[in-house]
Design a protein around this nucleic acid. Sequence first.
DNA 1: CTGGTACTCACGTGGTAGAG
DNA 2: CTCTACCACGTGAGTACCAG
Length: 395
Amino acid sequence: MGVSKRKLESKTKNTENSTMLSNVTYKKSNTLITAKGKSTLLGQKLFAIGILMAKELDDGSLEAIIPGTYLRKALGRNNGSFYDQIVALVEPQKNKASLLDWRIIYKDKEEQKIEASNVITDVTFHDGRLTLRYNSKIKKYITGLKNNYTVLNLSESLTFTSIYTYRLYEVLKAEMDYQRAISHSEGPYEVTYELTDLKLMLGIIDPQENADIAKALKKESPDYEKIEKKAEESGINKMSNYTDFRRYALERAKKELNKKSSIHVDYKPVRMGRGGKVVSICFKLSRVGHEKAKEVEDAPKKDIFEQIDEMQQLFSEKITASDAKAILEAAGMDMKKVRYAYGISRKSGRIDNIVGWMISAIKNGYTENVSGASDADFEQNTYDFEELEKRFVEN
DNA sequence: CTGGTACTCACGTGGTAGAG
DNA sequence: CTCTACCACGTGAGTACCAG
């Protein structure tokens, strides 16, 4: 009896968490999304949370400090080996992947070269706070994104239980948004990925484990057949059996995406040659509930309840949650604007109606010129046309 | 292609102790 | 009392492989 009650409690707690985080989105450059490399599910989730929290330091580097309580809430864990897991990711151990080991190979479109970098250069975990320092090389793919990025829903992606669901979600969402941008159609869309390419993107084949593969990937148009062969030779071609790949990666990801995400996925293998060997996978994608998905895309980055809390603490006047929400909305969910306007209100003599004053102050532009990531929230997800053309030529 | 087995290791769960 | 931190144990994810 006691046990089932406890279970019930934890269940309600979980749903509470998911609604609290229901409107949180993060942006990731498409370059990073299609980058090849292996990482753990927890690592990916931490990275995404880190993007939300990332701040630029004086020396230009990018750092995210994530409080333990936030991590717990975001990851829906309240106790247990939670710290162990974080610590395990932070402290490199023999044969174990840490966040620091997360290395990716990606194409830098502006500079026309292919790079291999560690994503995170520094991780510490002290006093319950996780600090991530991002590689300065990939900084431009995380903050101040102007084009060629994808808005991803953190609350969706945090619920995924498979790393393949997570990776595929990002890849397919990016592709879907891209196709929507160029075709102005509401779908369904189709994409075909070369099987080996897909495995690389999902981290099933890790280029870090084999120098030849890493080298082959750095070519302008990688020879996937060769990569597959190399992977086979060196024994790092996991799930070389297509049926296993389908069962444990594709099928699982498909089920989870269809159940939990705003993407509806279906796929079919493309076979070639005498043996009918599967050479690529053709995905069919459609959006679930356009209006809803749109809402999510325009949604705030930070947990709204947290922001309301923060505001209620900030204001010396008593304000209700709905007042706070109204102000937040006027500020486009930007806490910085709220703080700045509030700061002005302190110097503006008597104000009878602080809520109304705040809203009109914000609307009249009494706001700090907020730079960087938060500004970019209101920009359109545009693509540059040179890039588009190039992709057309490729295909 | 499906079912089933086997194995490893990461993760989930819950208890607990100490610091603030 | 809350939060950090550590421990033990069971479970689930990830992978390979074989039989029907």
